[in-house]
Design a protein around this nucleic acid. Sequence first.
RNA 1: GCGCGGUUAGCUCAGUGGUAGAGCGUUCGCUUGACAUGCGAAAGGCCAGAAGUUCGAUCCUUCUACCGCGCACCA
Length: 737
Amino acid sequence: MAIELEKAYDSKKTEDKIYKLWEESGFFDPDNLAQDAKEPFVIMMAPPNVTGSLHMGHALENTISDILIRWKRMKGFRTLWLPGTDHAGIATQNVVEKELRKQGQSRHQLGREKFLEKVWEWKEIYGNIILEQLKKLGVSADWSRTRFTMDDDYRRAVEAAFVHYYGKGRIYRGERVINWCPRCRTSLSDLEVEYKEEAGKLWYIKYSLAEDSRFQIPDSKFIVVATTRPESMLGDAAVAVNPKDKRYKNLIGQKVNLPLVNREIPIIADSAVDMKFGTGAIKVTPAHDLLDAEIAFRHNLPNYQVVGEDGKMTEKAGEICRGLTTKECRGKVVSLLEELELIERIEDYVHNVSVCSRCGNVIEPLLSKQWFLKMDELAQYAIDAVKNKKVKIIPKNFEKPYFDWLNNIKDWCISRQIWWGHQLPVWQCKCQTGRISNLAHQKPEDIFVVSSVKPKQQCSKCKSHYERVFDVLDTWFSSALWPFATLGWPFGVAQGKPGDLERFYPANIITSARDILNLWDARMIFSGMEFMGKSPFSHLIIHATILTKEGKRMSKSLGTGIDPLDLIERYGADALRFGLIWQMMGHQDIRWDETAVVAGKKFANKLWNASRFVLGRIPEDAKLKIPPLASMTLAKRETDEAGKKILREALKTRKQVEKHMEKYQFGHALREIYDFFWHKYCDVYLEESKKLDDNHIVLVGVLAESLKMLHPFMPFITEEIYQKMPLQEKTLLMIER
RNA sequence: GCGCGGUUAGCUCAGUGGUAGAGCGUUCGCUUGACAUGCGAAAGGCCAGAAGUUCGAUCCUUCUACCGCGCACCA
C-alpha cells in the first residue's frame, strides 16, 4: 500500500490541528529546545494594543517575525519570541468610553474607580483576542512568557524606572505650554499630535497705540497684527516685531491698548518673528502658543490663561466671553471688533490645524503643570547607539528621520490626565500648600514625594497622609521598557522564569511599523541604555506599510481596511502569509493585491499535489533515510542525470534563499523557492520521473528539502506534508535542521 | 519650504549598461495515469518626459511632471 493524501488540501481542517501539535511540543519555549542549541536568538513582539483586532499591518509584521524566528529555530538557535499586549492608555480609554456612550453613560458619571473597573473588564474580555488571532496566522511565539504592560510586576518596573529617573534629576515638574486635547482632557506629547490642512481665515486686527506714546507715528495710530485665532487675543501679553524690521523700528518699546480687554501691552522686538508673515507684527499669547511662550519667557511677560482644560473660555477671558467655546468666542470677538472697526481686512488662509491623534479633536495649546523627562542626555544615548552601530536600522533610510527627531528633541511630557494607565509614583498631601514655580528644573520636593510605596510620614502642615496623584504616565513610557521589563527587570524574575533577563537581553530583532520609529523604537533604545547599559536590540526592521490598491491608507472607519482573518478563512493562513511576503519586495509600501493570496492558495495546492504524487509512489511502511543532497549529486551510479540536475538546482536555490534571508529580502527568497519548486521540480523533474522507476530518494529528498526551505513562509501545509513522509528519525519540521 | 520613496504588461510588482520578467487577468488548445487551484501555447510594454555621460541607457547623472510619505511652518 502506498501513502495516500487526500485529493485536495484543506487548510481549515489542517491549521488548527497542526498549531495544536506545535503548542503541545513545547518548542515555542526556548527552554524546551535541544540541549545543544546554539546561542539565543530573540525577537520582542511589538505588543498590539488591547483595543483592537488584527489588521493587515499586524499580519505582515508578525509574519515577518515568524519567518525569522522559524528560520533561526531550524538553524538550531535557542529562539525566543516574546509576545504580549499593551494597555494603550488613551486609545483603550476612548474605546471603553465609546461603549459607555452607547449606553448613555460617561466616564465622569461613573467616576474614576468604577470606570477603571469597566476598562479592566473590557481588557479581560477583549485583551487577548488579538493574540488568539495571531495564533491563526501561525505565530510561533512563546505564549508561556506572554506579558501585558500593566501586569503587576510590569507596573512595579514602570514605577522603579520613574523613581530612578527622578533620583537622577531627569524627571521634573514644570509649567509649560503643552498640547492639550479638550476632548480626551489630557496633555499629549508632540508625537501624539497630527496636522490637518484646513481652509481658514487670517484676520488683520488693529491694535491702537496707547495715549502716552512718546514717538511720532508715521502713518496711522494703529499697529496691525495678523492672526488665525482672534479669540486668543484676549490673552495677549505683547505685540512682537522683528528687531530688523524697519517698518516698526520706531514703535518698539511703545505700548498698545489691547482692544476689548483694555490692557496696555508693550510692543517688543524678538528675532523669532517672521517679517514676511502677515504685517510682520504678531500678537503674543504666552499661555496658548509654544512660540509665544518662549518669546514671553525671554521678555519676562505675564500669562493670561483664557482657554481652560474643557476647551472653553475662562474667567480671564472676561465677562462677555467666559464659558463660550473657543469657536463661539471667535465669532463673538470678531463681531465685536467689527463693530469697533478694528478689523482691517480678512484673508483666506490655508493652514495646518493640530489635532489629537487619538480622537481627532483640535488641540488647544495651553499652559499646564506637567511632569517632564529631560531628553538631552537620553537622546544622545539613542543617537550614539545607532551611530556606533549597536543598533542597525533597516532600511537605512529611516536613520534620517530618527536622527532629525533626536537632534531637535524637546523634553518629553510624560504625565497624562486620563484614568487608564500607570499612575505616577508620586504622592501629595491634602493641603497641597507648596507653591509651584513656573521655572522648570526646580525640584518640587516641598509638595510631592516620589516613591513607589506610599510615604509613611504625614504632612507637617495639614497632618494628613500623602495620597497618590491621579495623573498617569504616557503609555509609551511603559512601552519603552518592554525589552527588559518583560524579562524580569528590575526584580530578576518574570512569570516565574528566573535568569531570562541575563539570557535573553538584548534582543536581536524588533520589527516595527514606521510610524512608531520615534514614538516607540527610539525610546526603547535610550531606555535600554539607561537601565541596562546596552541597546535593547541589535536590528530594527522597519517594515512596509500596507495600503489599499488605490494607494490610500487602510482605515477601519473609512471602510478601506481588509480583515486578515477573512483572508485566512477564505484562502488559509499559509496562502495569506504567502500573499503578504510575495508582495514584500524591498521595503516599498504595498498596494494590497489579493491576487497574491490567490497565488498562495494555488501554490499550496501545487505543493500538496506534488507531494501526493511523490508519496503515492512510496510504500506506507517505508523508512527512508535521505543522505545530504550534496553527497547525492556525487553518487555517480545511483543517481541519473535528471536527478543530478534537480539536486544541483535545489542546492543552488538553497544558497540563493539563504542569501536573501540574510538580507531580510523575504519576497525574493519566497519567489526563489516558488520558481524552483513549481517550474523546476514539478514541471521538469516530476514529469521526467514518470519515465523512471527507481528514483525515490531524489524525489523524496528534494521534496523534503523544499518543505524545509518553505516552512518559515508556509508553516502549516509544510508541517502537515512532512508529518506524512516516510522518513527515519523524523520529528517536527518546525525544529528540523 | 526641506527631505525620502515611487513612476516598467490591463492590475499589483520584480529586474538588468547590450534580445524586457513574475503573479493575477485575457485569448486559443488540452478530462496526458499529482494537481482544471492544472498542462501547453499566445496576445499584450517608445520601461513618466527632457537633456547629458556612453559604441550602446529602462538601468548612471541632471532637470521637469505626477503620486505617496516624513519633517518644518502652521503667530
